[in-house]
Design a protein around this nucleic acid. Structure first.
Length: 388
RNA sequence: GCACAGGUGGGUGAGUGGUUAAAGCCAACAGACUGUAAAUCUGUCCCUCCUAGCGAGGUACGAAGGUUCGAAUCCUUCCCUGUGCA
């Protein structure tokens, strides 16, 4: 075991700059290096909706999300595994992170039943029954082969009283231990090319392994957040996520909980805030010391005609843009703002053209990625307290 | 010319004597969206007025007239559209 570990390459996090609480760093994964703080576009079903992978690369996307629950149902883990995991299947050479399916325990609450052992789901696709546990979530995530995988957690709903929040947190902690145990026993099984020396007593080259991140829960209660953080750290992970936020609570609460939780996370490990936020919010959380964030907002909002710009939100479907020859955002350097008018974007949206989804998503993703670039730049200049 | 079938709000299309200012869908307009059951969902959508409400009044189902306590719905005449036959 010790021998194997000495030949293992998983994740490595180096903080290179600090500005206030903010950190600028590099996260080394088996599929490339990520500059942090980073925004990770969400590609639930092995696609960032409306955007092909080569374009994502051009935009500078460093790491994508995939979702275990959705990919398990379709196309199935075995299929993905045969293609060398998600990287091979979706032809994405850079880093990938998969969520464990824990969020679906929350969002598909009418279709599931939670027990100590795990969660029984009814598929939203065909109604068939499925069982998810820490162990088989890990097995699925190992099969999918993301660089970073997440512990199987229960995302506590909002609002939840203290007793409910605690028992949910305790369940997540027990599941975190089971997730880690299963992962440690199987972590060399990622279906990546070059990992064919799995099981060899003395591997000739470093094995690439995935990394498993733990997830802190605890609802809106700051004491429970602290306890959850401490006990998750005790279990021990190479990175820690803050989960259970953006579930309907007021934004001030989100920020408060994030700030309080960050205090109890190790300074030298990556910190991942799950499921946030608007452009202003992601800049703000980075300032507080968050290293990784993901959110469906830029992609989903784009498909619904809501675009983020340097001058605020624009609902491109509005009649006022029908004759507007100007760019979506005069201060944006993205390919959409360089080329198309607001009138054209509105026309595409109003006409229900698929191109509307593509162009809108490209802009919003560009805007988010640019926001994070500016944040990193500010950190490198030591300007932690006044970001764009 | 004759025989059928029809003419409903921006469009389509239900409704065939009374909770019908008139279903549903589309269009239009506005809003929501934060580890994606989301190219989705919600609201408004004849006019005027106010104390802004399951509020008051007005106008409206091709046109005019009639029957009835009451008509988009029944009757008469006229106009128009489609199809078929001459």
């Amino acid at each position: 075991m010790a021998l194997l570990q000495s030949h293992t390459m998983s994740i490595d996090f180096r903080i290179e700059e600090r500005a206030g609480a903010a950190r600028g760093g590099r996260l080394l994964t088996p599929h490339g290096e990520i500059e942090t703080p980073v925004f990770m576009p969400v590609g639930t079903g092995a696609t960032v909706k409306a955007v092909p992978q080569d374009v994502l690369e051009e935009l500078g996307v460093q790491i994508l999300l995939g979702n275990t629950y959705h990919l398990y149902l379709r196309p199935g883990v075995e299929t993905v595994r045969r293609f060398g995991g998600l990287h091979g299947f979706m032809a994405w050479p850079r880093a990938i992170l998969t969520d464990s399916g824990g969020f679906q325990v929350f969002s598909l609450n009418e279709l599931r039943k939670v027990t100590e052992e795990g969660v029984t789901f009814r598929s939203h696709l065909d109604g068939s029954s499925h069982f998810f546990s820490p162990e088989n979530s890990m097995a699925a995530q190992i099969g999918l082969g993301a660089d970073i995988i997440m512990a199987f957690d229960e995302c506590t709903e909002y609002p939840a009283d203290l007793a409910r929040t605690r028992s949910s947190m305790e369940l997540t902690l027990r599941w975190a231990e089971r997730s880690k145990k299963y992962f440690e026993e199987h972590k060399h099984e990622a279906p990546w090319p070059g990992n064919d020396n799995v099981g060899t007593a003395a591997p000739t080259r470093p094995l690439k392994t995935q990394s498993l991140f733990g997830i802190v829960q605890g609802g809106m209660d700051l004491a429970l957040r602290r306890e959850s953080a401490e006990r998750t750290i005790e279990i021990g992970f190479p990175g820690y996520a803050i989960g259970g936020l953006s579930v309907g609570e007021p934004r001030e609460r989100t920020r408060e909980v994030v700030e309080a939780t960050l205090e109890h996370l190790p300074a030298d490990k990556p910190r991942y805030l799950m499921g946030v936020g608007t452009p202003e919010e992601i800049a703000e959380y980075a300032r507080l010391g968050v290293d990784m964030m993901d959110c469906v907002l830029p992609t989903r909002a784009a498909r619904h005609g809501l675009l983020f710009t340097s001058e605020g939100k624009i609902s491109i479907k509005q009649a006022r843009y029908a004759q507007d020859a100007g760019p979506l955002d005069p201060n944006c350097a993205c390919r959409i703002c360089q080329r198309y008018s607001r009138a054209y974007l509105r026309h595409l949206y109003a006409s229900n053209e698929v191109l509307a989804q593509v162009l809108n998503t490209l802009h919003n993703l560009s805007f988010y990625l640019d926001t994070m670039r500016r944040v990193r730049h500010s950190i490198s200049l030591g300007e932690g307290s006044h970001f764009p």
